[in-house]
């Protein structure tokens, strides 16, 4: 474990806490893409298949349970909770995310570390996480003004993978045979997808104005 990875995990946790705060405090999920939440639940479920077979550390296991539990709770809440689901922007959240799932699964069948059930699903989860934010970014562009908590949620979600890139650079220089090309390249693509969001988020922070994504 290094400071970059710990910071990355804490930033990721922060993004989830901000999202939970928004939904529970405002009893609303307006501006949140249910499809992105479903993709993230799938990412965690397919990435942590080794939850009960490989014990790394208490921290690792606890964080995996937190990520799986919170993502499923958010999907459940947006689908089933009487008050929350009424505020879901279903007519704006129309990204065809099943194509993302299919494309990522096909890619995982072609590019993976080892042709085993667990490794293919791990690669699938890495590719899917890289594109999982797309429905959310599309929804933000369509829904015009973005409320603070939603903006912070997306910001922390993007920042965590950028910190992971620093972690991979650090591990590359400090560990002999460290090679995580699948995660590294996918992480670069994932962070690049946030580039324009980060730009508008910075502008809104600098001018102390409402976050506006151009349509």
């Amino acid at each position: 474990m290094n400071i970059f990875r710990l910071a990355g995990d804490m930033t990721h946790l922060m993004s989830i806490l901000v999202l939970l705060l928004k939904i529970y405090a405002t009893k609303s999920c307006s501006g949140i893409s249910l499809k992105t939440q479903e993709l993230y639940a799938l990412v965690f479920l397919t990435r942590y298949l080794d939850l009960f077979t490989d014990f790394i550390s208490v921290y690792n296991t606890v964080m995996k349970l937190v990520f799986i539990g919170s993502s499923l709770a958010i999907v459940w809440c947006m689908r089933m909770h009487r008050t929350v689901k009424r505020s879901y922007d279903g007519q704006l959240d129309t990204f065809r995310h099943y194509f993302l799932v299919a494309a990522c699964f096909l890619s995982a069948l072609i590019v993976h570390e080892k042709f085993t059930f667990q490794e293919i699903f791990w690669a699938f989860s890495i590719y899917l996480e890289a594109v999982a934010i797309l429905p959310q970014l599309v929804l933000l562009q369509r829904s015009g003004n973005v409320d603070n908590l939603t903006g912070q949620y997306v910001f922390f979600l993007g920042a965590y993978r950028a910190l992971y890139i620093l972690n991979w650079i650090y591990r590359y220089f400090t560990e002999q045979h460290f090679s995580r090309w699948i995660a590294c390249i996918s992480g670069l693509v994932q962070t690049a997808l946030y580039a324009d969001f980060f730009y508008y988020y910075f502008i809104s922070w600098k001018n102390n104005s409402k976050l506006q994504l151009p349509a």
Binding site: Q118, Y164, R180
Partner: peptide, 10 residues
Amino acid sequence: EAEAEVHDEL
């Protein structure tokens, strides 16, 4: 046969 290393990252 390089055994697939355990993924120690989240």
